[in-house]
Nucleic acid binder design. Structure first.
Length: 655
RNA sequence: GCUGUUGUAGCUCAGGGGUAGAGCACUUCAUUGGUAAUGAAGAGGUCGGGUGUUCAAAUCACCUCAACAGCACCA
């Protein structure tokens, strides 16, 4: 089959003709020998291709060198193959499955009778370095599906056979070879195993289900990280260490915020300091609710099973609910969510269209029996507090309400220093309730809102679509924020609900004295107060802004002579509304500074003979090695000013 | 829930078939010291829980609980 010539456009805009059969390597060599040496792949119309692959069509070409960001994907993928070869070389009866590239690295899942040990990882890494040193070229062969299947069957690679079975019969498959070893793989790959380089590290072993399905067999997964050079690897490992230092479970203990214990898996013991943060956050949210016209309510903790049957939760999530049977054989459930309770409040009495929208908020304490393996500090617990609210409105009010909620969510996040937000619209899933027309209408309104959110944000807010990821009762927005070290957390959500008002028979009376079903919108901003505090702890690395810090300042005396004045400083700051503690212990100032710094107290106020004499204070701020001197009055003014919550500051400044 | 690992004083960790050890924290005493650990003395645990093997178990086996990592789950 003689292919005609084709033309390629280079990044600088020049266009050149090439003969059929020309490979990426040929093109690179045509430019310069050194470029050919450095190149690892080409990008044709934005898609990466093997260097050795004959180019099949015209398009925009870029030569990708090893230092290119796009080469990182190849390095990681190559590394996964090298890992698989190393494992099979060491333990030939291990079966291979798949080994994709993930954020920061790659993994490969193996089926092996014995689990891998940490020592095995070292052995494997050594073997990998040998394979990389061999620098065998990656070569691609195209096999028919049947040949490939027969081949892997003969090898006993049952997982590969299963993968091939899932591919259409008339499709050809790529087999990538590296030395003696080969694997079924879509590609592309770098030129040779040497392309992986040295900047990789096997990180951990863990179980993982075959094809991600918990009904399937569990495989042994080896995680690795790989980078273009040692410096990047070092940076990544450093970032991991930083993340570990910020771990809210560790800081929670060090800052005396909360604890967990065996008798209460997944439920939090909030200590005085932690509860101050919790209350600080709650009070902030309360003020924001007030500002946005919400009414706070409180629905019962325990309700009869019948109510949960009506809501549908009994059928769907019964195994995740805490239930109890009383002496007289009545079955109750601890609330896993607040919506049924709020619908009862809505239904109590006759509602007029004039009342709508009704915005009902609750800091609802809910309990869910989460799978034991899911629990993780404050981030995933069995008892938590939702900053929940339900907006009952008319269909016409839906758009405006979604936008108001969006406004509340975004300003809240920005008050905590989260500026990088993604809003995702999740649309109808396969399993769903409601009519197609209902979904059409709701989704089109939500899409409109989404577009407006993006348009109004000056490019600050990114939006995405999650097709099929909506709740069974309606489409939803998910708000994802990015913390100080670049990790994403989904917190807020706005969900339209078709099902619940109908299930409970909730209605209002419209202008024509007719019964109408209200539209119900569920929304949360923090999501779980517990989890949000966990995120805040890690985001701030324990360095809470002054308005949230449980202890805002410690007054530490340098000598006992300063105690009297020290007490005056404490009293003055307390009178000004500051959360202050005194440390008049018989210890050196160095010792006190160290202790309160470790406890992440934002301001240490040292008081010695000099300060007592002059009526001044010496303030050392957390994270600084220096201190500033000022009069007590100046200190009170600057600290109280800084301790004003951002919403109150906004209110004050706007009038 | 699944796979693997771990569980010794408040914290971090050592030890390991013959009845527990360090550092920090704590208490007391001395020290009154100017911004990340002053010194000395003292007190503190029966080794996550249970059952078994053994003359003897924290140490071995089994069961169980919890935590950690990942997977699955997250209304």
């Amino acid at each position: 089959m003689a292919q005609s010539a084709f033309s390629l456009e280079f990044p600088d805009g020049t266009v050149r003709e090439f003969d059929a059969g020309t490979t990426g390597k040929d093109v690179a060599e045509g430019i310069s020998k050194s470029l050919a040496k450095k190149s690892v792949a080409i990008s044709l119309n934005g898609e990466l291709m093997d260097l050795a692959e004959p180019i099949a069509s015209s398009g925009k070409i870029e030569i990708v060198t090893r230092t290119d960001d796009r080469a990182l994907e190849l390095i990681r993928h190559d590394c996964a193959h090298v890992l698989a070869e190393a494992v099979q070389e060491l333990w030939p009866d291990t079966k291979v499955t798949i080994g994709p590239v993930i954020e920061n690295g790659f993994y490969y899942d193996f089926d092996r009778a014995e689990p891998f040990t940490p020592e095995d990882l070292e052995t494997i890494e050594k073997k990998m370095r040998q394979i990389i040193a061999r620098n065998d070229p990656f070569t691609k062969q195209v096999w028919s599906r049947d040949d490939a299947k027969a081949h892997f069957e003969k090898m006993g690679e049952t997982y590969k056979v299963e993968l091939i079975d899932a591919i259409d019969a008339d499709q050809n498959l790529n087999i990538y070879h590296q030395g003696e070893w080969h694997d079924l793989c879509l590609g592309p790959h770098g030129p040779s195993t040497g392309n992986v380089g040295n900047a990789f590290k096997l990180m951990s072993v863990a179980g993982a289900y075959w094809r991600g399905d918990s009904d399937n067999q569990m495989l042994s997964r080896i995680y690795g990280t790989a980078w273009a050079d040692e410096k990047q690897l070092k940076n990544y490992l450093f970032m991991l260490e930083e993340a570990q230092k910020r771990d809210h479970r560790k800081l929670g203990r060090e800052m005396d915020l909360f604890h967990f214990q065996e008798e209460g898996p997944g439920v939090v013991f909030w200590h005085a300091n932690g509860w101050k943060v919790f209350q600080g956050l709650t009070n902030y949210m309360r003020r924001r609710l007030e500002e946005h016209g919400y009414d706070e309510v409180n629905a019962p903790q325990i309700l009869d099973k019948a109510l949960w049957q009506t809501s549908g939760h009994w059928d769907w999530y019964r195994e995740n609910m805490f239930t109890t049977v009383t002496e007289d054989d009545r079955q109750f459930a601890i609330k896993p969510m607040n919506c049924p309770g709020h619908v009862q409040i809505f239904k109590n009495g006759l509602r007029s269209y004039r009342e709508l929208p009704i915005k009902m908020a609750e800091f609802g304490n809910v309990h869910r029996y989460e799978p034991s393996g899911a629990l993780h500090g404050l981030m995933r617990v069995r008892g938590f507090t939702q900053d929940d609210a339900h907006v009952f409105c008319t269909a016409e009010q839906l758009e405006a309400e979604c936008l108001r909620i969006n406004d509340l969510i975004l300003t809240t996040y920005s008050d905590f220093g989260f500026g990088d937000i993604v809003v995702k619209l999740s649309t109808r899933p396969e399993k769903r309730v409601g009519t197609e027309e209902g979904w059409d209408r709701a989704e089109s309104i939500m899409q409109k809102v989404l577009d407006k959110i993006e348009a109004d944000s000056d490019g600050r807010i990114r939006t995405e679509l999650n097709p099929g990821e909506g709740a069974f009762y309606g489409p939803k927005f998910e708000y994802v924020l990015r913390d100080a070290i670049g990790r994403d957390w989904q917190c807020g959500t706005t969900q339209v609900d078709f099902a619940l008002p109908e299930r409970f028979g909730a209605f209002y009376i419209d202008q024509n004295s007719e019964k109408q079903e209200p539209v119900m919108v569920h929304r949360a901003i923090c999501g779980s107060m517990e989890r949000f505090i966990g995120i805040l702890i890690e985001h701030f690395a324990g360095h809470f802004p002054l308005w949230l810090a449980p202890v805002q300042a410690v007054v530490a005396t340098i000598t006992t002579e300063a105690e009297e004045y020290g007490q005056k400083v404490v009293d003055t700051l307390k009178a000004a509304g500051m959360r202050v503690q005194s440390d008049f212990r018989n210890e050196k100032i160095n010792y006190k500074v160290r202790e309160h710094s470790l406890a992440k107290v934002p301001a240490i106020i040292a008081i010695g003979a000099r300060e007592a004499e002059e009526g001044t204070v010496s303030i050392r701020r957390l994270g600084s090695k220096h201190q500033t001197n000022m009069t007590l009055q100046e200190a009170v003014e600057s600290l109280t000013e800084e301790a004003i919550a951002p919403d109150l500051k906004r209110k004050r400044d706007s009038g």
